[in-house]
Amino acid sequence: MEAFITHTGTAIPLRRSNVDTDQIIPAEYLKRITRDGFEDGLFSSWRKDPDFVLNKEHHAGASILIAGPDFGTGSSREHAVWALQNYGFKVVLSSRFADIFRGNSGKGGLLTAQVAQDVIESLWEAVETDPTVLVTVDLESRTVSAGSITAEFEVDDYVRWRLMEGLDDIGITLQYGDEITAFEAARPSYKPVAG
């Protein structure tokens, strides 16, 4: 995984709450067996509306999504993270993320930066006033800044460390193979086996 230290880019204001993973990527797109090429499914239903914010030409090339509360609710589909990344997003800002979506994002290298709703409102206004305003999300200092706005964001310490190092979780866990083997040796015989 590519290390994430800081990112600067333009942003898209998504003034919606409870953006569930069925909106981020509908189930129809989940039949594919690859990890890429999901950008066409991103918000596919909403993108049919020419007025939808992602369709605005002045927001083309944006890499930061500023969303309402409870972003990523619903299904555990990691395709939601892939779709956002395949489209070009590096960061999502929200005042509250669904747990599984946030976990998936951390695994895939998409930063979910949690800020208070009033910061979201200020960022929405700033970006709507000037879509070219550059937003910087700095993982080292845990700050988001845009124009005159600067705010701290919340991110789990361990996830932050892993993102900054670009580490693969499975590689870390496999270092503890002996501990896993020892645990398995002590498991009770009444635990079921599938096969």
């Binding site: 599984i100 695994k107 503890y176």
Partner: peptide, 20 residues
Amino acid sequence: FGIGTSEVEHVLATQTLPLK
């Protein structure tokens, strides 16, 4: 609990998950 595909791979490879 539900997990994403990266965690599915993690469990397939290690039968464990790192969790807070």
